[in-house]
């Protein structure tokens, strides 16, 4: 495993820990999009079906279980915890996230590495992950005061995506037969969504004005 991949996994892990910290210690999920969290829970559930069929490494298995368990528990907390759910910005978090799922499924049926159930689900999870952050970005744009933890959560997620792109470049040049077009294209689309957002985020921060994304 190269340094970019490890750093990518660690920033991903930290992003989840930051979110769990906010939920457990402050008992708040203000500024966090339940829509995005639900999409992530679906992303990891459909991607890690190979937990039952393929063993890669202990590291791989543990990380998969962490991402599965944390994403499902975050959704549970936001929906059902009697204190946490009260801080959820329900009226602002209006993105119709289920509409993203059908096109991703159709694309996965058409474009996959192999036409098997596991591979179609894997491709679906990649396409869905690419757009899963959209409800969160829309919510951030609407929320007047973004607290530090929410800002750090999105920053860590963006870093995770950027580091994975570096990891792919590194692997392409150092490993033979390492070509994964589906992963790369959906990963780059996802990274560009973050980059575009951060551009406006830092602009508004620099000029000290409320974040306004172009329509």
């Amino acid at each position: 495993m190269n340094i970019f991949r490890l750093a990518g996994d660690m920033t991903h892990l930290f992003s989840v820990l930051v979110l769990l910290l906010k939920i457990h210690t402050i008992k708040s999920c203000a500024g966090i999009s339940l829509k995005t969290q639900e999409l992530y829970a679906i992303v990891f559930t459909t991607r890690y079906l190979d937990l039952f069929t393929t063993y890669i490494s202990l590291y791989n298995t543990i990380m998969k279980l962490i991402f599965l368990g944390s994403s499902i528990s975050i959704v549970w907390y936001m929906r059902h915890h009697k204190v946490v759910r009260r801080s959820y910005d329900k009226d602002q978090d209006t993105f119709r996230h289920y509409l993203l799922m059908l096109p991703c499924l159709l694309l996965a049926l058409l474009i996959n590495e192999k036409f098997t159930f596991l591979e179609v689900m894997w491709a679906f999870s990649l396409y869905l992950e690419a757009v899963a952050i959209l409800p969160q970005l829309v919510l951030l744009q609407r929320t007047r005061n973004i607290d530090n933890l929410t800002g750090q959560y999105v920053l860590l997620l963006g870093a995770y995506r950027a580091l994975y792109v570096l990891n792919w470049i590194y692997r392409y040049f150092t490993e033979e037969n390492y070509v994964h077009w589906i992963t790369w294209v959906s990963g780059i689309v996802q990274t560009l969504l973050y980059a575009d957002f951060f551009y406006y985020y830092f602009q508004s921060w620099k000029n000290n004005v409320k974040l306004q994304l172009p329509a």
Partner: peptide, 10 residues
């Protein structure tokens, strides 16, 4: 038995 595609990334 078909070979499954191995995904070693998360």
């Amino acid at each position: 038995e078909e070979d499954a595609v191995q995904h070693d990334e998360l």
